[in-house]
Amino acid sequence: MFNVKIAGALLGIIAAAMAVAMPAQAQNAADWEKVVAAAKKEGKVVVYSGAAPASLKKAVEMFEKSTGITVEILIGRGAEIRERVRTERSFGRNIGDVLVNGLSTAIGQMNAGDTQPHGYLPNAGKLVPPFTTAPFNNGDMILPVYATSWAIAVNTNLVKPGEEPKSWHDLLDPKWKGKIIVDNPLSNGGGQATFAIFLEKFGREFIEKMKAQQLTFSDQYTIGQQRLARGEFAIYAPFIVSETYNLKGLPVKGIVPIEGKTYSSQMIGMLAGAPHPNAAHVFINYIFGDEAQASFADLGYTSPTGRVSTTITEDLKPLMYGKLFDIITEDRLSKAVPILESIFK
């Protein structure tokens, strides 16, 4: 009798724990209200983010205000977030609910089992091409938060308007020898993604000619653009176009090459074993809502739902909304990296 009581109590506890831990999987709009109610009951969502902290700030504030759910953000560099998530999952110490990380790292994490299906998202239907397909759209696992695009930046004191490069190929002009700083093509990030695209589209010869330009490498984009602004270099590439806002008043100009901008995206997904799955579910959905997407567009990022900024000035529109060239995927990058290493190391 005693044992039956204990067993009954234990079953009750397990059932209650499961009810808390399992997301109220909404399959349609009618179920969504239940998810929101369960999310509010959970009260908070923990986001593990490798993205620039400022990029999520406004969206998080608006989410907290509109839902009353507290957002706790734990930041780190992409690889640190990846290892922390992996370690916590391996040893059953799940703390994070939502993952935000760069495209190739996030896909690696998804493939490693760090994420779980987020379920039905009312706002996911707002995604527009090319963000509706792979590598951005990965079923109900990870989705694009916002895209970062890369162009060419020049120091306007050193490069006169008539001399400005108009194509990625113009970077090979001998007059720029020793005057170009690039994001390190050997490091995971914008530089490597862009050089991998060059390799595919323009061939190995292009990369070797770039090397002959006596490039200086930058491992941190903020340093690269500071050195450009100070006049240490005439050209910086690839340049994150949204950084234009952070360089206002400095002699720096972004130029969209005729081939277009290379680009990539920050991705979002629900972490496997998330302690607050409903709050995570609601948060991920909110990210694709108009308010959040407008906040990303206002910061100069490309919105995967096609939102445009209402605050952007006319002169910056060509840079921000200019033609997109290509994006590199995990498998293509894996093929390109050894070749880039053999050229640059």
């Binding site: 992409g78 690889a79 640190e80 690696g108 050997l186 490091s187 995971n188 990030g189 990296v337």
Partner: peptide
């Protein structure tokens, strides 16, 4: 640092 932070997979 490069082998941890700058490779596709650390």
């Amino acid at each position: 640092y490069n082998s941890i932070n700058h490779r596709q997979a650390p």
